[in-house]
Amino acid sequence: MQREATHAVAPAVPVPAAKLGMWWFLASEIVTFGGIIVAYLVFRLAHPQWLEEAAHLSVPIATFNTLVLLTSSLTMVLAFAAVDRGDERRVATWLALTVALGLVFVLVKAYEWRHEIAAGRVPGESGFWGFYYGMTGLHALHVLGGVVVNACLLIAALRRRLEPIAHRVEMAGLYWHFVDIVWIFLFPLLYLSTH
C-alpha cells in the first residue's frame, strides 16, 4: 500500500512449520539425553571401579548394533531420496528396511539385557548398571517410537497413500538420525571407555 507497509512479510524464516516444530522437539530431546549423560559422566569420573563393571559388556554385540543403526540411517536417507523422486515403491522398500533394522537393534538390545540380567547384573546391582539400563532403556524406547512412526509411513506407502503426507518421511528421518546420534554417544560412553 505505501512505504511503511510490508517490508517484512511472514514467514520471515523460510522453514516449513513441520520441520521447525521437529527441530524444537529435538532441541528438548537433546537436553533430556544431555542431562542424563552429564550426570553419568560426573558419576563415572567419581567411581573408577565402574571400569570393571563396564568390562562385562560385550563390545562385539554393541559394535554390530551400531552398524545396524548406522545402516538404518542410510536406508532412511534413501527412503527420503525416493520421496524426492516420487518413487513410492522404492520408498516402501527403504522404509521396510529401516523398520527391520530398527527391530533388529531392539531385539539385540533385548538379548543383551537378558544376558546381563541372567548373570545377576540387574539395575540395582550398582550405579553403573542403573545408568546402563536407564540410558539404553530410554534410548531403546526412542528407537521403538521411531519404528512405529516409520511403520505407519510404510503402511501408507504400501497402500499408495503416501503422497499427501510424503513430507513426513523427512520429519521421521530427522528424528531417526537423532536417535542414531544419541547411540553414537552412548556406545563409547558405556561400552568402550573401559581402559
Binding site: 537436553v31 539425553f33 542431562g35 540395582g124 550398582s126 550405579g127 539400563y133 536407564g134 530410554l138
Partner: peptide, 23 residues
C-alpha cells in the same frame, strides 16, 4: 531447554522407586 534434565531425573527417580536402582 531446561525441562529435559528433569524429565531424565524423573525417570531416574521412578527407577529408584520401582526398579531397585540407586541414582
Amino acid at each position: 531447554l531446561s525441562v529435559g534434565p528433569l524429565i531424565a531425573g524423573a525417570v531416574m527417580l521412578l527407577l529408584d522407586r520401582l526398579a531397585g536402582t540407586s541414582f
